[in-house]
Each structure stands twice: as structure tokens, then as C-alpha cells.
Amino acid sequence: MEHTQTYDGSTDPDQGNSGSADPSSGEGRLVGSDRVLAVLKQLARYPDGVGLEELTRVIGSPKPTVHRALGALRRAGLADQDVRGRYLLGDEFLRMAFAHHEARPDHVRLRPLLQTLAVRFGETAHYAVLDGREVVYRAKVDPPTGAVRLTSTVGGRNPAHATGVGKVLLAHELDTLDAVRQWIGGTPLERRTPRTPCTAGELHRALETTRQRGYAVDDQENETGVNCLALPVYATSPTSPSGAVSVSALTYRTPLRSLVDAVDEIRAALGPLSAPHRPVRPRTP
């Protein structure tokens, strides 16, 4: 599930190209380049376009300043306006995004592997990296057949603690209960389903099991009706994973037990990108 971030700010005079919020008006207020980038990010959530009134409401800035931000984006080719007067991402933005994505080394190297896994299991295969408390999906391949598919997207995010790819990467970062507690900090972990590990103790036990197995599972912990098995990928270092590959399946179609039984096959498909299965200890400072 994706969450829309709302930006707050009751007054918003132009501040040139300042990239930070005015400290006198509170943290939530956006000025200058921050406002322009906030508008750009919101446009990505509306592939069919969005009107100025709705965009103003979501951003939380006055209409004239949102309109000026849209003007700057349109002049750069990063936004456009259709015949209905609705705003959407511009062709230049899409050109840059697709060109960059196609040229990324992880996309080029891993897409054939993901295609193999998607065909083999008839389910969705992902490659994701860890970014703080979340995982970011860098590549995705859907199965060639099947009427029901996952809604995940390249560039989409999910909580690391609730996903197989997140847990397999956190297992290499957080080796003790204290480390897990420090990682959680003062912000409680989101409970996506009744099975999500949300306490430090629950997550620590899950990471210990992951280290012993050499793989992680998501047993309907991020989304009810979806499970997955994830393995680390060593694309840049033999000791530290650059990311993780997962096979994500609908539970009624591919039970978790079927994925676990095929873990050696999945590991073999990774080839040189997979480290030998052994109980691993995470990195130490």
C-alpha cells in the first residue's frame, strides 16, 4: 500500500531557489526548490493527470505558488498540461527516468534472472535494496501468465521489517537485540498485518532465523494473501549484499512451503551473485 505525504504551509511567499524550509514558519512549510520537488513527486502519483485545485490541496501551499512551481517544471519539460487542463509528468522527465533505469547495472544484470524466476514459479520476482527503514524495488518481472498480479512498482517502497527482502538485508546489519532496538528508535514499527514483527524481540528473532537459514520469508507479514522468499545478492562485494532477490507469490496459488522447498533452486539461479549457504554473522563496526 502506498501512502501520500501531505505538505503543510498556510503562507508561502517566494524565496528564490532556497532549498530549505523557512525556520520562522515551522518545519512543514516548503519554499523554493523544495516546493517544486514536492509538486514533481505528487505528479508521479497521478498518471491520468491532476487538477490545480486538488494538487494545491495535497501539497498544502497556496494556489499561486503551486502554479508557479508547475510553470517552472513545464519550462524544464518535467511537467505538462493535457487538453483537459490537468497536469502530469512531462515527456522529458519520462525520457530521463527510463534512460537512467535501463542503464542501471543492477537492472541490466538482474532482469534476466528475474525473468527466469517469474517463468519458473509463475509469480512475481523482485530485486530490492535497503534504504533506511524501507526497501526500494529496483527491478520487477511479472509472470508471463496469470490474471492476478502484484501491484508493486519499480521505485516503490515497503517497510523493511515486514518484507522478506528487508529482513534478509537487515540480518546483515543488525546482529544484536540492542542493535535492533537502536534501529527502531523512538518510532514504532508499522503493523501491516497481524503477522508483522513489530517489537524489537520479534524482529531480532526473525533476523537470527534468517542468518541461520541464509534466506528470509515473508509469511503474509506485509500483505495478507501474499508471501515471499528472499535471498541476498552479492553484486559488488563477496561479503556484503548489494540487495536482495525475492519470489513473491499469492498464497492460494503458491504456498510458502513450495518456495522454501525450492530455495536451493533459487540460490542456484542466482549463480555467482549468491554467496554459499552458511550461517552468517553480520558486519561488525
Rank of each mutant, 00 (worst) to 15 (best):
V119I: 08
G201E: 15
V141N: 03
A69C: 08
A249S: 15
L43N: 02
T124M: 14
P47G: 00
R45A: 08
V148L: 15
V226T: 02
R35W: 07
R95Y: 11
H67A: 12
V226W: 14
P194V: 01
L189N: 07
P285F: 03
Q42V: 01
Y127L: 14
E221I: 10
L114A: 11
A206Q: 14
P197L: 03
N17Q: 09
T56P: 00
G51L: 05
A72D: 13
R205K: 13
S237P: 04
V180T: 07
L170S: 09
S248L: 13
T251M: 10
Q81W: 01
K167L: 07
I59W: 02
V136M: 10
E265C: 07
V141L: 06
R57P: 00
R205Y: 08
G225E: 11
G60I: 05
T199N: 03
P272D: 04
R211M: 12
P272G: 01
D91C: 01
E102P: 01
D131R: 14
L229C: 11
G146K: 10
D8A: 12
V119K: 13
I266M: 15
L130F: 06
T209S: 08
G164M: 12
T145D: 11
A160H: 05
R278A: 15
H67Y: 15
T56R: 00
R278K: 10
T209K: 12
L94S: 00
P194F: 03
N158D: 14
L94G: 00
R35P: 01
L229Q: 13
L52C: 00
Q42F: 06
S24V: 04
M96C: 03
A118D: 03
L117Y: 03
L270H: 08
R120K: 14
S20Y: 13
S246N: 15
V39N: 04
G271V: 05
D261S: 14
G90V: 03
D14G: 05
L37F: 07
A162N: 02
G26L: 04
Y137V: 14
R104Y: 01
P279S: 04
A79W: 11
A216H: 05
G90F: 01
G9V: 08
L73M: 11
L207S: 05
G122T: 09
H161I: 08
I266K: 03
R95A: 09
G225F: 09
G166I: 11
E223K: 13
F98C: 02
G132N: 00
G201S: 07
T199C: 06
A97P: 00
T151G: 15
H277C: 12
G225K: 12
A235V: 05
D34V: 02
R211Q: 09
G32N: 10
R29P: 01
